[in-house]
Design a protein around this nucleic acid. Structure first.
Length: 890
DNA sequence: ATTACTGCCC
């Protein structure tokens, strides 16, 4: 009986031992627990080998309580049992516990070996306990295990993870026989410190040293390529990976998907993804994130469905991307569903989940939900605050956005690039110039003046606040100017009416080695529009075609606007007819263009067509409609649209509509009605409105209204000289020379200078600028000869200079000379000698065209058989066959 | 011993 028991236990000894090590490998806890009882029964659990195997199994399966109990039961501290426990903690992510166990064992006098040190070091790395890590390193050296390549590799990784990259590199270099894992450890330490370039170099060194990379080396190197955005290198690594037969490695495949998705062709990413036999959650996530990154939001959501159907549950990564897709698509319902998913998964404490939701709710205009999610965040990190600021900007709450920043900055003094960009956006939209200057100071103080993104935002904000000079200063001091910087400053110039400056910069782009993109083109088209630079505009049009931006609806709308503002309503019409899907912007641009050219009836027809096309007008469309009525002198029509726009189109008349209507009435001589509207509208009349009334007073020779309007304008815009000039003109036209003299004195005292009349004429790619009596042009002699010749021909046809338009109280002869050398006349004369016969002449003027020039051009266009197109500050004048398109109404 | 995917701003 006794013998049998012994022999049975002998055979069990071997089989239990085998079984236990098998169970340890597969982490089969249940079976282990089942064996534990029989082991006790046969008395084998007291055997050190079996006990250690059990400790190992329990530690691996995270049942540390049982493991510790077995250690306590053992008669003396044992290296293997403690090692098992420590490694169990370390492998399962219980770093702190591993270190505690290590200290306990150390105090008990356990001597460690090359199998224990890696676990302890791993725990130091995961808890970022550098101090203990260095002490363990000392222990390693003292016990002579430094030369063990296994331990040395772990040290390299530990130092890197604790942020001590230099020590990590030194230790790596000191390893005499570096194996593949040593190299991998170094590669991973580069990944830790964001040194993708260094990692790429190491990979090549590794190859040169004859070490064969494994799947770890490949996936890490591919990640480095992604970090660098260097797809060319990445593709080479991809090729080599195939050659060495690691194509099936899931980590490398996922790294490839991520690389192509982030920096290359999304198609390549999807190809790699489709070749993965059993994509895991990371493969799906990387592909879905790639779709979102490239703007294929529907595709991303479809993939998410497919993923679920394949039996894989979305995790936080998946839902982050999905929320971004919902935000971009404005899909509230789906967004809410994902919110429910996140709550069910109990991961709402994760900042990524909250920020994704905040962003989604703001972009879907569900402000309250966004704010609720933010309030429920246990710890509001910087990214969440940034999302709040930009969310408010997104919803037009610029003041709230700025206040939020100020409040946050006072509390934490924390901000980053994204904060600055969000605040700058708010400033730009709010035109908050004082805040803009403060943020500028903050940018300089905090060292962000080397950050191009921030500087571009700053330029943009100064531009939107109409502080061109500040914008230009930031631009000039920009350390490295890239294409977006140029775009920002060119857009600023274009918006502030300095189209010429924008064009000058554009011509410099090739010299800087920069290629224009669709943003530059759109900015330039706007510049051309402001400048009325028709030839330049046509060239940009060619660029837009060549560079393939014609699929861009913005580009097409910009073309309509540019051609209209450059005086070619025909080209504008052609561009308009080529817009595939006309939005309210396309229609408004066309209607506004027609209006500016005095084609009031056509503009109104266009407006009716737009309504038939089921496109709803917006405020801008109605400004264009009223302006069309204005330029065509259609007073009744204007009144009808103005009075019915609220009920017909649900658009509340804004200041611009009132201003336009007041202008219509004023021009038509209905000065009383105009003043009624001024007194009864829900706004204070601004400078534009008083300016219009002053013009009306001049046209209809109403001194009283002129004086009142002028007085208002002196306070509203004292820096403008136009007011004085117009008032003086009113007095002059009534022969009130003493009053003219008074105004002139006033002008002199207040140091307001008359804004000099300037005209521009574009020939080929050069813009020629002229002022009154200009003799600086290289072809001045020919120009003045032409003017002389024209003067004689015009006189024969019956032209008489309209001397009363000049307010200089000088001799008649002198007046005649001053009049004949007005900048627009010089420009037209230059046009006649510098362009081929029969070509239309396009001139832009910075002020309103003068009455005498207007009359003269009617004669000239007939004499020379040319179309003369003058764009003044308000509108276009097309002179053809002795008359002007404005019908003498401007 | 070593490897991947997510948020705010451009």
């Amino acid at each position: 009986m006794k013998l049998r028991a012994v022999s049975k236990s002998a055979s069990s000894y071997i089989s239990y031992s085998k079984l236990l090590s098998q169970l340890s490998l597969t982490k089969s806890l249940d079976q282990g627990l089942q064996i534990h009882a029989p082991l006790i029964k046969v008395g084998l659990s007291q055997d050190p080998k079996h006990r250690n195997q059990l400790i190992n199994l329990y530690s691996k399966c995270k049942v540390f309580r049982h493991a510790r109990k077995l250690i306590q039961e053992s008669p003396e501290p044992d290296l293997v049992s403690w090692s098992s426990l420590i490694s169990g903690y370390a492998q399962n992510g219980f770093g702190e516990e591993a270190l505690l166990a290590f200290r306990e064992a150390h105090v008990l006098g356990v001597k460690f070996n090359e199998f224990t040190f890696p676990s302890v070091l791993k725990a130091c790395a995961s808890t970022k306990n550098f101090i203990l890590g260095r002490q363990v390193h000392g222990l390693v050296v003292a016990t002579g295990f430094e030369s063990d390549v296994f331990v040395a590799n772990t040290l390299v990784v530990t130092y890197a993870k604790c942020g001590h990259v230099v020590d990590s590199r030194r230790l790596f270099e000191d390893i005499p026989e570096k194996n593949c894992i040593s190299w991998n450890a170094r590669l991973s330490s580069c990944a830790q410190s964001d040194s993708s370039g260094e990692a790429m170099g190491l990979f090549h060194e590794m190859l040169a040293g004859g070490v064969r990379p494994d799947e770890f080396s490949f996936s890490t190197t591919l990640n480095a390529a992604t970090g660098l955005g260097d797809i060319i290198q990445g593709k080479k690594v991809h090729g080599y990976l195939i050659k060495l037969g690691y194509e099936g490695d899931p980590f490398s495949s996922n790294a490839l998907v991520d690389m192509y998705a982030k920096g290359g062709d999304l198609g390549d990413a999807i190809t790699v993804f489709n070749d993965i036999p059993e994509p895991d959650i990371v493969s799906w996530n990387a592909t879905i994130a790639g779709c979102v990154l490239h703007g294929y939001y529907d595709r991303a959501l479809e993939l998410l469905d497919q993923m679920k159907k394949s039996g894989i549950c979305p995790n936080l990564f998946t839902l982050s991307s999905a929320l971004k897709a919902c935000a971009a698509l404005g899909d509230q319902e789906l967004g809410k569903q994902f919110h429910a998913n996140l709550i069910k998964m109990d991961i709402m404490k994760d900042p990524f989940a909250s920020v994704g939701l905040i962003d989604m709710y703001f972009k879907c205009h569900l402000m309250k939900d966004a704010i609720t999610v933010y309030r429920l965040m246990p710890e509001k990190d910087l990214v969440a605050i940034n999302a709040m600021i930009s969310g408010h900007v997104e919803n037009g709450e610029y003041g709230e956005a700025i206040n939020l920043f100020v409040e946050m900055y006072r509390q934490t003094m924390e901000f980053d690039q994204a904060t600055l960009l969000a605040v700058l956006n708010a400033i730009a939209a709010f035109e908050a110039i004082l805040v803009c200057k403060q943020i500028h100071a903050l940018i300089v103080k905090s060292g962000y003046q080397a950050d191009n993104f921030v500087l571009n935002g700053l330029i943009d904000s100064y531009g939107k606040c109409s502080h061109v000079q500040d914008a230009a200063k930031v631009f000039e001091e920009c350390p490295g100017t890239d294409l977006p910087t140029y775009t920002s400053i060119m857009t600023t110039y274009a918006q502030c009416g300095l189209g010429e400056e924008a064009l000058k910069l554009y011509l410099k782009l090739p010299n800087m080695g920069l290629k224009p993109d669709s943003f530059v083109c759109s900015s330039l088209l706007k510049a051309c529009a402001t400048l009325s630079a028709y030839e330049q505009g046509k060239q940009i049009h060619v660029h837009v075609l060549k560079l393939g931006f014609m699929s861009d609806v913005f580009a097409r709308n910009s073309l309509v606007n540019m051609y209209a503002k450059c005086g070619s309503i025909e080209d504008a019409g052609r561009a308009f007819s080529e817009v595939p899907k006309r939005s309210v912007v396309s229609w408004s641009a066309m209607i506004g263009g027609l209006a500016q050219h005095g084609h009031g009836k056509e503009a109104l027809n266009m407006f009716n067509e737009m309504l038939k096309d089921d496109v709803s007008p917006n405020q801008i469309t109605l400004v264009s409609v009223l302006s069309a009525c204005n330029h065509a002198g259609l007073v009744n029509e204007a009144q009808w649209y103005f009075e019915t726009m609220r009920e017909q189109f649900g658009i509340e008349p804004m200041q611009e509509h009132y201003a336009c209507m007041i202008d219509v009435l004023g021009r038509a001589g209905k000065l009383d009605k105009a003043m009624d509207l001024v007194n009864n509208m829900p706004f204070e009349a601004n400078a534009t409105i008083w300016g219009g009334l002053l013009g009306a007073a001049k046209t209809h020779k109403n001194v009283e209204l002129g004086q009142r309007a002028a007085e208002m304008l002196y306070t509203l815009e004292p820096e403008k000289s136009g007011t004085h000039i117009l008032l003086a003109n009113i007095y002059a036209s009534e022969g009130l020379w003493e009053d003219v003299a008074k105004v002139r004195r006033l002008m002199k005292d207040s140091k307001v200078k008359k804004e000099p009349g300037m005209s521009w004429m574009e020939v080929k790619d050069k813009i020629h600028t002229f002022i009154v009596g200009d003799r600086t042009h290289s072809r001045s002699e020919e120009i003045y000869a032409k003017l002389e010749e024209l003067g004689q021909l015009m006189a024969k046809e019956g032209y008489v200079p309209m001397l009363e338009t000049d307010l200089h109280h000088v001799e008649k002869k002198e007046k005649e000379i001053l009049l004949s050398y007005h900048s627009e006349k010089i420009a037209v004369a230059f046009g006649l000698i510098a362009t081929p016969p029969g070509a239309p002449i396009r001139v832009k003027k910075n002020l309103r065209i003068c009455l005498d020039c207007h009359t003269a051009f009617k004669y000239i266009c007939k004499i020379v058989s040319r179309e003369i197109i003058i764009r003044d500050i308000n509108r276009f004048h097309h002179f053809r066959d002795g008359s002007c398109s404005c019908g003498d109404y401007w």
